[in-house]
Amino acid sequence: MQRRFFLKQTGLLAGGLLAAKELMAINKLSAPVRIGIIGCGDRGRGIIHILNRMPDQFQIVSVCDVLDFRLTAAKKIEGGERWTAYTDYSEMLRAKNLDAAVVAVPLHMHYPIALEVISQGCHLYLEKTMTYNIEQALDLVRLMKERKNQVLQVGHQYRYSPLYYRVKEMIDRGDLGKITQVDCRWDRNGDWRRPVDDPRLERAVNWRMYRAYSGGLVAELLSHQIDFINWLFDVHPDEFSATGGIDVFGDGRETFDNVQLMLRYSGLGLIGNFGAMCGNAYDGYLFKIKGTRGTLSLLTDEGVFYPEKKIVKSKTVVDGVSGASEITWDKKGGVPILPEKTKDGTQYAFEDFYKRIKDGLLPDSNVITGARTAISVHLANQALYSKQMVTWKKNLEP
Score class of each variant (00 low, 15 high):
27 N>S: 10
59 Q>V: 04
77 I>W: 02
261 L>G: 10
126 L>I: 01
12 L>A: 02
295 T>E: 12
138 L>V: 00
79 G>A: 04
313 K>Q: 02
87 T>K: 15
58 F>L: 05
114 A>M: 13
166 R>V: 03
260 Q>N: 05
64 C>Y: 04
166 R>E: 08
395 N>W: 05
178 K>E: 15
42 D>Q: 02
281 A>S: 11
225 Q>L: 09
35 I>K: 00
374 A>D: 06
230 N>S: 13
390 V>K: 14
18 L>A: 14
262 M>E: 07
241 S>R: 12
173 R>C: 01
269 G>D: 12
256 F>T: 07
376 S>K: 11
105 V>T: 08
234 D>V: 10
356 R>A: 03
137 A>T: 05
115 L>T: 05
270 L>C: 03
180 T>E: 05
282 Y>T: 15
37 I>D: 00
346 T>H: 04
148 K>G: 02
167 V>C: 11
37 I>C: 05
388 Q>N: 10
292 T>S: 15
355 K>G: 00
68 D>P: 02
198 D>K: 08
228 F>V: 11
141 V>W: 09
269 G>I: 01
392 W>F: 10
378 H>I: 10
49 H>P: 06
278 C>H: 08
342 T>I: 09
218 V>Y: 00
281 A>W: 08
335 V>F: 04
230 N>R: 07
255 T>S: 08
249 F>N: 03
97 N>C: 01
372 R>I: 15
189 N>S: 09
297 S>C: 15
116 E>C: 08
137 A>K: 15
253 R>G: 04
184 C>E: 12
279 G>V: 03
2 Q>I: 05
355 K>H: 02
151 V>D: 00
53 R>V: 07
238 D>E: 06
199 P>F: 11
108 H>N: 11
145 K>Y: 08
48 I>E: 00
353 F>Q: 00
250 G>T: 05
84 T>M: 03
169 E>R: 02
244 G>N: 12
167 V>Q: 03
90 S>N: 06
292 T>P: 05
387 K>L: 13
279 G>Y: 12
46 G>P: 09
271 I>T: 14
99 D>E: 07
290 K>R: 12
282 Y>Q: 13
213 Y>F: 14
276 A>S: 14
129 T>K: 05
88 D>R: 01
179 I>K: 02
374 A>N: 09
32 P>T: 00
19 A>M: 11
33 V>H: 12
273 N>L: 07
311 I>W: 13
321 V>R: 12
13 L>H: 01
77 I>Q: 06
388 Q>A: 09
185 R>N: 04
257 D>F: 13
275 G>T: 10
38 I>F: 13
3 R>N: 00
330 D>M: 06
30 S>N: 10
21 K>C: 09
156 H>K: 03
343 K>I: 13
75 K>A: 08
219 A>E: 06
117 V>Y: 06
214 S>A: 15
37 I>H: 01
5 F>C: 13
27 N>R: 15
54 M>V: 04
36 G>F: 02
16 G>D: 07
